[in-house]
Simulated scan of single mutants.
Amino acid sequence: MKSAHVPESVKKVVHLGSRSVGWLTAGARLLPSFLICGGQRCGTTSLYRALAAHPAVLKAVLHKGVHYFDTSYHRGLSWYQGHFPLRRTAARVERELGVPTQTFESSPYYLYHPHAAGRIARDLPGAKMIVLVRDPVERAYSQHAHELARGFETVADFASALDLEPVRLRGQRERMLADQHAYSFSHQHHGYRARGEYAVYLRRLALEIPPERILVVESEQFFTDPRPAYDRVLDFLDLPSLGYPEFEQHNARPRSAPMPARLRTELRAHYAPHDAELAQWLGRTPSWRA
């Protein structure tokens, strides 16, 4: 039987109640042992759902992305911990499976936010990071479509939005570094070219979190041949192989028209040095450069 549509107002009330209960029981709940962060439009939702299907993995209670270490850090660690499963639930699952359980969340903005890496290192010592990357040219085009669809972008022409990016982002990172409570809408939503410079953010992440606790995964590999990529993730997380989930691609937004060839060539040249540095993290040339 088809389930009835739940109004957004009702969902908000349910979520608020669940968060209140979570906050009150925060001390009895788990904290994540790993996070999926970045890049946006790189398949983070698909990997999140594949890992959430693993019997020994318990996901965040309400949302795949809690956004604590970027935009909600002022709410405090108890608020964050309230989003995750109870320890008694984990203990029951561990008895049934005979293996340790883990919990996690996925917030792509953690890779880009100036304070996120330091906050993660401080509050989740020992946590591992999975960073998804994708052809940065295609990623930028996909992000623009995504922001348009959500109403976070008003400039419909991709080339025009790219031209505006330096103006929109000028001084925003510096302002956020100077004030840990500062927020920048454009920094979160309009970094089309900037967010594909993966090596820059990985370098910054590695200043706070040891590189051996960072795994970089190509989304192209995950979508075209998911099982080896999934096995690599399980090995990195010390999770047992207990079969494969259904691998699906989520949140894809096809464009109505291809990217202009001139713009594609320009972006490809821009990303060349960044992709060369990224190869050191992947252990090989990125597939879009091979």
Rank of each mutant, 00 (worst) to 15 (best):
Phe104Val: 02
Ala4Thr: 12
Gly65Thr: 06
Ala50Tyr: 02
His190Asp: 07
His54Pro: 07
Gly27Leu: 09
Glu153Tyr: 05
Tyr112Ala: 01
Pro273Gln: 02
Arg227Gly: 00
Glu197Asp: 08
Trp288Asn: 10
Val167His: 15
Phe104His: 01
Gly243Glu: 14
Arg170Met: 13
Ala117Val: 05
His181Gln: 08
Asp275Ile: 00
Gly43Thr: 03
Leu62Asn: 13
Ile120Glu: 04
Gly118Thr: 02
Ile209Ser: 08
His83Ile: 07
Met1His: 13
Met176Ala: 06
Val155Met: 13
Ala269His: 12
Pro7Ala: 06
Val200Ile: 12
Ser72Val: 00
Val61Trp: 14
Gly38Arg: 00
Ala116Cys: 06
Phe34Lys: 01
Ser78Met: 15
Val61Asp: 15
Ser106Val: 12
Gln172Arg: 10
Gly82Ser: 10
Arg268Met: 14
His250Asn: 11
Ser256Arg: 13
Ala252Gly: 03
Ala182Pro: 09
Val66Met: 03
Glu220Asn: 05
Leu239Arg: 01
Ile120Phe: 10
Ser46Met: 04
Met259Gly: 09
Val131Ala: 03
Leu263Val: 09
Glu208Trp: 07
His15Asn: 10
His5Trp: 13
Tyr198Cys: 03
Ser219Trp: 12
Leu86Met: 15
Leu62Ala: 08
Lys2Met: 14
Glu248Lys: 15
Ala127Ile: 08
Arg49Ala: 10
Leu30Phe: 12
Met176Phe: 11
Gly283Phe: 11
His187Ile: 04
Gly82Leu: 09
Ala140Lys: 00
